[in-house]
């Protein structure tokens, strides 16, 4: 009855029915069950709460204490870009941790406890099961991200801080994608490994490695090759930049930097140990230091460092774990 009177409910009901009837969405009931089940886990709420507070806190601080003022470009008015600059170093390390906690148990825990037998007694292939888990748990990851972003907007709307809609929405999109990537990463490991404990150890271990050591890996590898293989400085910088971009954390950061800087070249320069050599010898441009920071003019970015390429590197962390997890899971005795 109420479903007919309430337009929102009716719309949701219609969407529900049309997905259900789609022939490519056999996994849909699993994703709904997954969402309902996971959303009731207290741990996820605690973690989401911490994330939301930390994520939206810069906005509150910026509003009440004008801390963001120093980040505003001289002469320009204060915009949400200052908030994004604050939120980026919080979201980049914290969101993967939230997504991993949401994803790691997805399949391994059910396999350990035996509820997987109930799921796979129903007419689902293992691939559909994995797809349903991925969609349902990704939706869970999007909750803290969405709530955090909305809180920020609500706090900032009545303030003097101007909302730069384009960059804010692109930042929102990139951050959602980032959360989904790490959810998929953890679910892939959950499908491949035997126990939830192992899935958590492996995904957190890889995450910590990416967070703490990967940034040095590119530079280290470049140095190593330069010392022992006699590669030139430009090649060394290529190795450094390319290896750095393969980390999902670095690729997310550079994409957000790109939104803020308005230039892919400037944001890639931030990843190298020598912006000047990178700009002038690798990219064939001229480095000018302005008030807004270093600017590399007349440069051409090779395709492997383009925006599309970096988005592809980020998405590799979604596709590879899911596909690898699927192959192991498909051929495994439960």
């Amino acid at each position: 009855m109420s479903a007919e009177q309430n337009p929102v409910k009716r719309l949701l009901g219609d969407i529900d029915t049309s997905i259900k009837n789609s022939e490519f969405a056999d996994w849909y009931p699993i994703s709904k069950k997954e969402f309902r089940d996971t959303v009731r886990s207290p741990w996820i709420w605690v973690l989401s709460f911490i994330f939301i507070v930390l994520f939206a806190l810069p906005a509150v601080l910026g509003l009440y204490f004008n801390i963001g003022q120093q980040f505003a470009e001289a002469g320009a008015s204060l915009t949400t870009d200052a908030y994004v600059r604050f939120a980026l170093p919080i979201a980049a390390p914290l969101l993967p941790a939230v997504a991993i906690v949401i994803g790691y148990a997805a399949i391994a825990r059910e396999s350990e406890r035996g509820s997987l037998k109930i799921l796979l007694s129903l007419p689902y292939t293992r691939g559909e099961l994995l797809a349903g888990k991925f969609v349902g748990r990704s939706a869970i990851t999007l909750i803290p991200v969405t709530v955090g972003l909305l809180t920020t907007l609500l706090v900032l709307l009545p303030s003097e801080i101007e909302i730069a809609w384009e960059s804010f929405l692109l930042f929102a999109l990139a951050t959602m994608a980032y959360g989904v990537v790490f959810t998929a990463f953890a679910i892939g490991l959950s499908a491949a490994l035997k126990t939830a404990r192992r899935a958590m150890a492996a995904s957190l271990g890889i995450y910590v490695y990416l967070q703490v050591f990967w940034s040095n890996l590119g530079a280290g590898l470049g140095n190593l090759l330069s010392d022992h293989a006699n590669i030139g400085q430009v090649t060394q910088l290529h190795v450094e930049l390319f290896v750095s971009l393969l980390s999902p954390i670095a690729s997310y950061r550079t994409l957000v930097q790109e939104i803020l800087q308005g230039s892919p070249i400037r944001s890639r320069l931030l990843l190298t140990s020598s912006p000047q050599v990178t700009c002038e010898e690798m990219l064939g441009g001229t480095l000018e230091v302005t008030q807004a920071g270093a600017e590399c003019t007349n440069a051409a970015l090779p395709p492997q460092y383009s925006t599309v390429a970096v988005i592809a590197y980020l998405l590799l962390w979604l596709v590879v774990p899911l596909v690898a997890g699927y192959y192991v899971f498909e051929n495994k005795d439960l």
């Binding site: 069950k33 309902r36 089940d37 035996g114 509820s115 037998k117 109930i118 007694s121 689902y124």
Partner: peptide
Amino acid sequence: IRARTGVLPEGYDVYDRL
């Protein structure tokens, strides 16, 4: 097969929160 079969598996577990 599963579309036409009802199963009561051994060593299963229900979803505690549902």
